[in-house]
Design a protein around this nucleic acid. Structure first.
Length: 214
DNA sequence: AACTCGGGGCA
DNA sequence: TGCCCAGAGTT
């Protein structure tokens, strides 16, 4: 079944949008700062954990300055239930101090500056650039990378090349949703081991259906 | 490239 | 119960 990339993207968005829950909208957060902090906390964690924590955290400290003024112990207490809580408590405190001191409390809008912040790597930086500042960049993690290759949206082992391939075919307003849906699809259906092709709604258009071993 | 961090989701 | 991580930092 032949499809142009644009038609394929539209199809993917419709199918995955009905199968998985709505993405955590950036509108849930009042500012780029809150999105940045929530994204740092989200590494190796689930939506549920992050939502519970950020609700409390942003009530206590809604912006960079107020977070930077909290005692380290208070921050740790607020994030204690999440993975890597010790590192993350330290990181978000450092980030809030850096933003307050060097960026007037605002979040920088370049990947170079974002990646200098502790706890922020390429993927987290790209999430912030795309979701908060609507820049044309695609966040790619292991799930997005694997699923995109299996679906034939790209053919590469390099994350940077997957980013470029995806951003070229996904309309800017859809980038954040796509990241979310491809991630969930990789997590729950298009798994690294034993992908669930029999229940996959994309099996009819996926070049890898039934081909994936181990 | 390999290892660590580390609590929770999922089979 | 045991396996596997919504990555990033260090070696």
């Amino acid at each position: 079944m032949k499809q142009t990339p644009k038609e394929k993207i539209k199809f993917l968005k419709e199918v995955l949008g009905t199968r998985y829950p709505e993405p955590r909208s950036e509108l849930l957060f009042e500012s780029p700062f809150q999105l940045l902090i929530a994204t740092i906390l989200a590494a190796q964690a689930t939506d549920r954990q992050v939502n519970i924590i950020t609700r409390e955290l942003f009530r206590a400290a809604p912006d960079a300055k107020s977070l930077s003024l909290l005692e380290p112990e208070s921050i740790l207490k607020l994030v204690r239930s999440i993975n890597y809580c010790n590192n993350k408590a330290k990181n978000i405190r450092s980030v809030s101090i850096i933003l307050t001191g060097q960026y007037a409390g605002k979040v920088p809008e370049t990947r170079e500056e974002l990646e200098k912040l502790p706890g922020v790597g390429r993927k987290t930086a790209n999430v912030v650039l795309a979701a908060a500042f609507h820049q044309p960049v695609m966040p790619v993690d292991t799930h997005v990378h694997r699923v995109s290759n299996r679906l034939g949206l790209c053919h590469t082992s390099k994350v940077e090349e997957t980013e470029a391939a995806l951003i070229a075919i996904i309309p800017e307003p859809w980038v954040v949703d796509f990241h979310h849906y491809l991630l969930l699809h990789g997590r729950y259906t298009c798994k690294a081991k034993k992908p669930d092709c029999p229940t996959c709604p994309l099996a009819t258009i996926c070049p890898s259906t039934g081909k994936t071993t181990s």
